[in-house]
Design a protein around this nucleic acid. Sequence first.
DNA 1: ACCTGTTTAATCCAAA
DNA 2: TTTGGATTAAACAGGT
Length: 302
Amino acid sequence: MPRPGRNTYSDQKPPYSYISLTAMAIQSCPEKMLPLSEIYKFIMDRFPYYRENTQRWQNSLRHNLSFNDCFIKIPRRPDQPGKGSFWALHPSCGDMFENGSFLRRRKRFKVMISGQLAAGKPLDAAHYLQQQAKLRLSALANTGTHLPQMSNYSLGMSQPSTFKHPFAIENIISREFKMPGGLPFPPMQPVSAGYSLHNQLATAWPHMYSTNAIDTVAHISTTSNDYSAFGVPVKSLCHDGQTLPAIPVPIKATPAPLSNLSAIPAHIPAFAPNCSQSLSLTSHQTLSMAQTLSSSLCPRGR
DNA sequence: ACCTGTTTAATCCAAA
DNA sequence: TTTGGATTAAACAGGT
């Protein structure tokens, strides 16, 4: 950690990665999704270091948004004109940061494709998507691992906890938090970020966000990690303690091009209105979804 | 023109 | 020493 010296701490580069900073920004707003410009604003408001060389770090930040699967892009609705999409955290990226601290990531979050995909065998996309939905639910039931955020959750206010990492988001973005050099963060400002992430994801990710799916797991207790990636007690992230599985995977295990399949729905709002609210998608739904996805995501080729 | 988003590549650095 | 995460730069496309 840099120590305050001749220069105030605020003049020095904060010890957070761009991923951390972006995650903070997204987490800080009630909707859990922000347009790029608001992410910039959040960072500049709180970290004076980033009020300079904006071109440099903003390019890096955009690179991170695109490059890292932990961020998902949520298109604006037609009735919400404006530039750019909203950005949110991937529902399964909750385990990225060690010990709930933003200072260091546990491992790179990658959306995973398992089994035959990893082996390079031909993909039955519809089957894959259905399998993934099942896997997520069963993982949820078995492990009680967590989802970073759900809507209607207030940072650091919901559940008692015994440990609060000094660099956990609830400390970082809370009114009381002070930078090590004594610079207090300005009070959180409400961000007009539009419509609810949950509403979007509930339609786009029926297997993750639907009322049915949540009801199914509403009373599963959390037995593993008590903290999410953001230093917020996992139990506080979901209503009634329900959780959803985080499936971060080592990057090595990640196959290339189709690895974004499970991040797809956020990219294809068009299919959302027709989505079933149940966990199991129909073959037709999954197939059309997969087709749309593979065509839109494959060029990314990572 | 400017902003947003994607992609590639190079480099640095810390952890394994 | 190797590996992988983070940062930076840059080119490019598309949208506003």
